[in-house]
Design a protein around this nucleic acid. Structure first.
Lengths: 152, 152
DNA sequence: TATTGTTATACTCTATAACTATA
DNA sequence: TATAGTTATAGAGTATAACAATA
């Protein structure tokens, strides 16, 4: 009987028990699903995140977004330029060196669509964790994420 | 009094509650710590993982490792070649197309050092989660990681 | 015909250095 | 002097396509 359950080709996976390994594998799976989900909107995950953050913080600067998301300023340039080029984000000068960012009307619509897509995406995975365990997981992940300074 | 605790520059972070976002941030923090930890051994995380897996599965093939770790065969070539070049891994032909991988003596010593470094690394983060919550987190991460087929 | 290992290559993401203009 | 934004570039990591040799 037990032979029926035997692994036909046993392979030891000692790293599979490690927290960092599990975290990375789980993160890659969720990122892949999110990417596939947002592809319908022709948005990458980072672009959807930027739309949501700009929508929630109208007038914020490019450098401030970079600090929050740990994206270097040099790498923010093509990201924001891409969203502006798509007509989703608009810049309005604050002073000579800063520009306030905001969503255009179509940017706000796209943000709403992206949030709906992300809700559906997240629901597919939240199903795998009981509500009470979800709080435990979220708390643990937050403590890990905050245990190192995020340089940006 | 409450003014003393007020955020000097309020910034809404609606994505910070999302499971995928938390997972990614936590994973990046642990990966950065692991990379810094293993730098003392001049090993990257993926190289340490390969040493551990080869040590636990002597005779395994390069393509099998790639399937387990979701690394494409084209990308396995320079990885294994690098470990062979460092004298940590040795190849012995099985048949005309497969080669069995194994650790050299110095590869086994390096594997031991890498596992010790990973133990210390992991302990720094396990501290942030109570033992009973650790099982909850590990279970949730495993279900998420297994919820999508891993293509490799 | 499917698999192992390989080469070459391209694309994305991220990092560094240097620079301009402004506060 | 420090900051916002930019440019150019380099380095990882990962992806596809095509191929040779073998099972």
């Amino acid at each position: 009987m037990t032979d029926m359950l035997r692994d036909p080709e046993p392979f030891a996976e000692p790293v599979a028990e490690r927290l960092g390994y599990l975290l990375r594998r789980a993160s890659l799976v969720m990122m892949a699903d999110l990417g596939a989900t947002l592809a319908a909107l022709e948005l990458r995950p980072v672009e959807a995140t930027l739309l949501i953050l700009i929508g929630a913080n109208p007038g914020c600067s490019q450098s401030e977004l970079g600090r929050r998301l740990a994206i270097k300023s040099a790498n923010m340039v093509p990201l924001i330029a891409g969203l502006v080029g798509k007509g989703l984000v608009e810049r309005s000068p604050i002073d000579g060196r800063s520009t306030a960012l905001g969503l255009t009307d179509s940017g706000a619509a796209m943000r709403d669509a992206a949030e709906a897509a992300m809700d559906a995406h997240e629901a597919r995975f939240a199903r795998l964790i009981t509500p009470s365990d979800r709080a435990v997981v979220a708390g643990a992940l937050q403590r890990i994420a905050n245990s190192h300074p995020f340089t940006g």
